[in-house]
Computed example of a mutant assay.
Amino acid sequence: MGDVPMRTAEGGRCARPAAHLFCLLRITARLTQRAPWRMPRLRAALAALLIVTGATSPALSGAWMFEPGDGVAIITTGFTGSANAYDADGRLQPIPDYRKFELRAHVEYGITPWLTGVLKTEGRLESQSDTERSFAGAGGRIRLAHTDRMVMSAQAIAYTPGLDDSGLWLDGEPAAFDARLLIGRSFSLFGRPGFVDAQAGYRVTEGDAADEVHIDLTLGLKPTPRWMLLAQSFSTISVGSGPSYRYDKLQASVVRWIRDGIGLEVGLTGTIAGVSALQERGAFASLWYEF
């Protein structure tokens, strides 16, 4: 995968990525069937994405590119909850207990040395309204400039509503288009490889929903070849004539590569500040599959 710092040191590759992605699809289907809540719409959206990625598959590499034929599929499940929310002045106020279950898939695939394809989907179930929400996105990332240690790229992803249990698009979920600039730099700390990734994006949403500015930062360090530490921040700011809100989240996790190309990630996430937003706290786990 070239200079992408999130690649395992062993650099193992799969001789038959399509066959292994089929196995990944079966595992994902079993996980969603055994989830605390049955989510047929979520399963349909994930299945649609992973079937597509059986032909072209991708990863969470930030600003960096994948080499042609290389990629990663990441399946994430998480639970968050909240008993407080930030009001319009940014002050915390108690609210009825809120719970959310999420299941996400993120896939990237190297098409050329300067172009990486991106596919993703997400489904969630929220306890207060007992409603399911889902979306799917597809796009790509283009390398604009690079050196031995730095890379600059641009990414664009179009999002559509997810599928219901009949395979039809969900009504009421807005479509969106996200464009962003990404900058990454690798470094060495006490002889161990690390990286910093910064992203600034603008998301246009159809209908009455507000557009959003996104600022995401990631710091990664590999203390050993099979362990990676990640610290991340995610800031979202509404713009335009829609509802006004803002929230800042921090996330910390550790990735353990249990064998070449397969890793497990566990982490914690939480909202540290906001305006007209929930103060969420939660945990998540991810399965990484590199090929």
Rank of each mutant, 00 (worst) to 15 (best):
A138H: 02
T224L: 05
G220L: 05
A19T: 03
L119V: 04
R34V: 13
I157Q: 00
R26S: 08
T224K: 00
G267H: 01
T76N: 14
S127H: 09
R185P: 15
K120T: 07
V255M: 01
W288H: 01
L163M: 03
H146N: 02
A55Y: 02
T271A: 08
L92M: 14
T269Q: 15
S241L: 15
L264H: 01
A179D: 04
L31Y: 09
D211R: 06
E265C: 05
I27K: 09
W257L: 15
R26A: 15
R226C: 05
G12C: 08
M39L: 15
T205G: 02
A179S: 10
G140N: 04
W114G: 07
A283K: 03
L21Y: 01
R38L: 13
P161D: 03
L170A: 11
L42C: 10
Y289C: 09
V107S: 08
Y202R: 12
P94M: 06
P17D: 04
R99S: 10
M39V: 15
V266E: 03
L287M: 06
S276T: 14
M39I: 11
D216M: 04
T147F: 00
S134H: 14
T28V: 11
S276R: 05
D97A: 12
T8C: 03
G117I: 09
S127N: 08
G270Q: 03
V204A: 10
A105L: 12
S153L: 13
T76Y: 05
V196H: 08
A179P: 03
L46S: 05
M150S: 04
I215V: 13
H20M: 10
L24W: 00
A209H: 05
G11F: 01
